[in-house]
Simulated scan of single mutants.
Amino acid sequence: MKKIAISIGDLNGIGPQIAITQHDIIKKICHPIYCVHKTILDNACDILKIPLPKYMELSPPNSTIPEIHPGMIEAQSGRYSYESFLLACQLTEEKKTHSVCTLPIHKKAWKLAGINEIGHTEVLAKRYKKNTMMMLGCQEMFVALFTDHIPLKETNKYIKPQAIKQFLISLHQCIKMEKALVLGFNPHCGDNGLIGNEDELIAKGINLANKLIKKEVFIGPIPTDTAFSPMNRKKYKFFIAMYHDAGLAPLKALYFEESINVTLNIPIFRTSVDHGVAYDIAYRIQPNTKSYFNAITLAAHKWRLDE
């Protein structure tokens, strides 16, 4: 079985709880290596009033061991989740593990810890000096994001034909999809320039990409309000959104529990749960673990993105 490095996420959230309660399930599909100290897992088990599962292989990060304070945003838990993630990347770079699966971090906790990057994706971009691509979804549907964690008012600055072309080419190099639907930017795709010209620039980028691929892989742009219609979801598995919420709002409405996060265009394979730290239920209620199971399953290559 493939070895998967699992970063533990924010200690005050649901990450440790998911790792502990799901260990006996995921060990049947991979060999998990948890980037965490046993002291922390023992502390989590004491709070949860459950025994620590047997045979959990641990690779602790070189970090101070903080106490768990459920539901609290703290610099200590932010720093630990960051160090756990860096170790998971290192293990995979060194071929000691096959891939990385990340449990959720809290961005404010990272900021309190003095970490400059907003989240996992930004760390990966800096670490590997690559234009990372964020794609989220499940076996039924995936959404790739042309822009991700930037203010909405700044997104139109990025809409340029060459940038669109390069993004689509890189996406196709990562995933050999047959067809993908590209969402527009403005309402009604700009109504022929009446509501902005960004969609004309997107169309140029699509044409440039298809010419280089020598095949009409990317279709669009199509108005965002109709892109995810039942008919389109029957025809397409892959969608490309120009900005975060245009693509992720419908995805999470349809597949909130199952969807996962995949980082593309980097030298390691990284999957993640597609949910947050859930401070409101941490160590009190058992969280839904479908996203974690799907992220581990993909990280172990039990199914392929381009199926």
Rank of each mutant, 00 (worst) to 15 (best):
P187G: 04
M141C: 15
P161E: 11
Q166M: 13
D148L: 05
H120G: 05
F185V: 07
H120M: 05
G196K: 04
E122S: 09
M133C: 11
L201E: 13
I159H: 09
E154I: 08
Q173N: 13
E122W: 07
T147G: 09
T147E: 12
A203L: 05
E198N: 03
R127D: 04
F167M: 15
C138H: 10
A125K: 14
K157H: 07
Y158K: 09
I150F: 08
N156E: 15
K130Y: 11
F146T: 06
E178C: 02
C189A: 01
A203R: 01
C174A: 13
D191L: 11
K179P: 06
V143I: 13
K157G: 01
S170F: 08
V123Y: 11
I206L: 03
H172F: 14
K160S: 12
P161L: 11
C138R: 12
A125C: 13
M134A: 12
G193K: 11
L201G: 07
T155I: 06
L201R: 14
P187H: 06
G196D: 04
A180W: 04
Y128Q: 13
G190Q: 04
K130R: 15
I206C: 03
G119D: 08
G137F: 00
E200L: 13
H172G: 10
I206A: 03
I206G: 05
A180S: 09
I202E: 06
E154R: 14
C174V: 03
C138T: 14
A180P: 06
G119L: 02
A163G: 14
L194I: 11
M134H: 09
L136Q: 01
F167N: 13
K165F: 12
M133R: 12
M135G: 07
L171W: 03
Y158W: 15
K157V: 01
I115S: 01
C189G: 01
N207S: 08
E178F: 02
L152D: 05
K153P: 00
I169C: 12
Q162N: 15
N186I: 05
S170T: 15
I169Q: 12
I115Y: 07
T132I: 15
A144C: 10
N131A: 11
H188V: 14
N186Y: 08
I206F: 02
P151F: 09
Q173R: 09
E140H: 12
F167E: 13
L171E: 01
